[in-house]
Simulated scan of single mutants.
Amino acid sequence: MQRPAQADQRDERDQRDRRAKRLGRVLVCAAAVPVMLIAAGCSSDSDSGSDDTGGKSADTAASASASASPTVQAAAYQSLPKACGVFSKKTLGELVPEAPKSGKEGTSDDKSARASCSWSSLDNNGVKGSQFRWLNVSLLRFDSDTSRGAGDAQAQTYYETQVQDAQAVDGAKSVKSQPVSGTGDAATTVTYDLKKKEGSFKQQTVVARVENVVITLDYNGAGLAGEKSPSAATLTKLAEKAAKEAVAAVSSANGEGSGAGTGSSPSASTSPSKSPSKSPSASASPSNSAVKKS
């Protein structure tokens, strides 16, 4: 009878040991839960702080970026001279001797950005025929603009386009081009012959750039009704002289000296810009310079 009792006692001890082990495991787990919660809380606070800092940094960067918008520098020239007043009486007397005292001013909605003037001369020699001359000057000024670039860079692009257009006139014969020294920052003369119903015309187009202004001078001449054709070399010399005078007038209108050669590089203007003038219309081409009979 003792063995069964001993067996019962051993069973009770085993059961107590198992309950004690389970209780111990429960207590250990219970103790671990607060630690995990605390760690999670700390981690959450840390992440939250990091997010706030990141947000503030992003806001600061955005604000700095907004305040660092590109600064603009105004173009060198802010005005133009009166187109009909860029040439002296002496120069007009040489180029268009029989022209009226005042030229014909072109229409413009903004004379500080674009202007033009033309003169027509017909020297009638009776039965010997007559000598015709036509002179036109166009002035285009470009303002600086952050989207389009510096005024003189825009002017350089337009200058190159004008030269190319002069070289590609329909019906032009014996087209020649040559650079002109001492005339603004860049200048080119394009010469050619152009036959019209009135006669054979000698055309000279001088395109010059000074700072942010482009000057296009068209000058042509013809001997009509049996009169001999004028010398192309003489007409070219007169046209280039007049172009230098127009460049000087632009510089003078903006408070500078003669402006015959500023020496600045066409691509030297890396300064961003202000607001651009409206896109200029092309200067009068020789094909539009119809002969005006007296």
Rank of each mutant, 00 (worst) to 15 (best):
A5K: 12
G103Y: 00
A64G: 13
G103C: 00
K82S: 11
D145R: 15
D170P: 04
S289C: 11
V206T: 06
P97I: 01
P81E: 05
A233L: 05
S121T: 05
S200P: 12
L235K: 05
A40G: 12
S112N: 08
T53N: 06
V96G: 01
A66P: 09
T53W: 12
A222T: 15
V127T: 14
S112G: 09
A186Y: 06
S147D: 11
A172C: 03
A282L: 07
S63D: 15
A186E: 02
S118I: 05
D110C: 04
L27G: 14
A62F: 10
V33Y: 07
A150S: 11
A168H: 03
K104P: 01
S65L: 13
S88Q: 06
V169W: 01
T60R: 13
G103T: 03
A222V: 15
A153H: 09
G55T: 07
S285H: 06
S285K: 09
T234N: 06
M1I: 14
V127W: 11
L95R: 03
A222R: 10
A61G: 14
K176I: 08
A284K: 11
S67E: 14
S112M: 10
S273N: 13
A253S: 02
S281R: 04
K197T: 12
T270Q: 10
S258A: 10
Y77T: 07
R18L: 13
S275N: 10
L140N: 06
Q162P: 00
Y158N: 05
S275V: 15
K278Y: 11
A239W: 00
C29G: 13
G149R: 12
A260E: 06
G199P: 01
A31P: 12
K82C: 10
E256Y: 05
K111L: 04
G103S: 01
S229P: 10
S285I: 05
T71F: 09
N288T: 14
L135R: 02
Q2H: 11
S231T: 09
Y219P: 09
K274Y: 14
E12Y: 15
T161N: 00
V163K: 02
R114V: 08
R18Y: 14
T91R: 06
K274L: 13
V26F: 14
A248C: 04
A284S: 09
P272M: 14
G182V: 08
S181P: 04
K90L: 10
P179A: 07
E198W: 05
R10K: 15
A40W: 14
S102C: 06
T107S: 05
V207I: 02
